[in-house]
């Protein structure tokens, strides 16, 4: 018996009763005979008796996607425990919050899609530094830019009191900057979200793919700004943790 494999099976079986039924019915061909015998030795009712586990897990996960869960169709959150995303995350030791985010995104209707995408990107920003450009002027680790329907960030910030529907993905867009703050070895960071517009948005888009010294001049020409003004903007963005600190020395 592979202990780690068995523990993953136990989690999946106690959280997803349908999966438990499949396994105990011998319908999961990847499970070897000795493991299946060990699983079948447990009283069949006991699999359903860990009744708080799914509820606890969903409660903890949902806290990271409050608006997406609120906007989701009935049953989407509860259905996560039967989804391929859930089972894949457990089997591959990958992030359950990100798996739920993907499920919510896949199930989101047109009116929920933008806000769900924002919360999923925030969850990513808390966890994934992601690949960064090799150039000296580049985004700081974990900083992300997301293109959303105009008004999405404001709607999310005011969603507790706003009665209006969320923005949908037709028409104008806005560039949202997501910047992780704080956190440490044992804590996830908070994520600051703000809409950036005009020259700043353009500069950050360039920094996302990487800029060198010559790009400062080109960017200044594009925006009708002097090199000193561009360098001042770069310094501010470095000080704010949006750009890699090395950018200030370019």
């Amino acid at each position: 018996m592979n202990l780690d494999r068995v523990q993953r099976l136990v989690v999946r079986m106690t959280i997803d009763p349908d999966f438990a039924g499949q396994v105990l019915g011998g319908l999961e061909p990847t499970i070897d005979a000795s493991t299946l015998a060990a699983l079948r030795a447990v009283d069949a009712n006991a699999w359903g008796a860990e009744r708080g586990r799914a509820e606890q897990m969903l409660g903890n996960l949902a806290g990271e996607f409050p608006l997406a869960v609120r906007l989701a169709a009935p049953g989407v959150l509860e259905g996560f425990v039967r989804s391929p995303e859930f089972h894949r995350a457990i089997e591959s030791d990958s992030s359950l919050p990100l798996a739920l985010g993907l499920r919510l995104l896949a199930a989101a209707g047109p009116s929920a899609r933008a806000v769900t995408q924002l919360e999923v990107e925030m969850a990513r920003a808390r966890r994934l530094a992601g690949p960064r450009a090799e150039a000296p002027i580049r985004l700081a680790a974990g900083v992300r830019l997301v293109l959303l329907p105009a008004g999405t960030v404001a709607w999310a910030a005011e969603a507790g009191v706003a009665g209006r529907p969320p923005p949908s993905s037709t028409g104008a867009t806005e560039c949202a900057l997501l910047a992780p703050r704080g956190g440490g070895r044992w804590n996830l960071p908070d994520v600051r979200v703000e809409v950036v517009s005009g020259a700043v948005a353009r500069l950050l888009e360039l920094a996302a793919i990487g800029m060198v010294a010559a790009d400062i001049v080109a960017f200044g020409v594009e925006c009708d700004a002097s090199v000193e003004e561009v360098r001042g903007l770069l310094a501010d963005l470095c000080a704010d943790g949006i750009l890699d600190p090395a950018a200030v020395d370019v």
């Binding site: 202990l3 523990q7 586990r53 903890n60 990271e64 030791d93 359950l96 919050p97 044992w186 996830l188």
Partner: peptide, 23 residues
């Protein structure tokens, strides 16, 4: 086991050990 998978939100649960010598 106090969690399954990575140290991350939502991964916390309390799993008994597998009752065998290896464990």
């Amino acid at each position: 086991r106090w969690r399954i998978g990575p140290r991350d939100r939502g991964h916390g649960l309390l799993l008994p050990p597998i009752l065998c010598e290896e464990s």
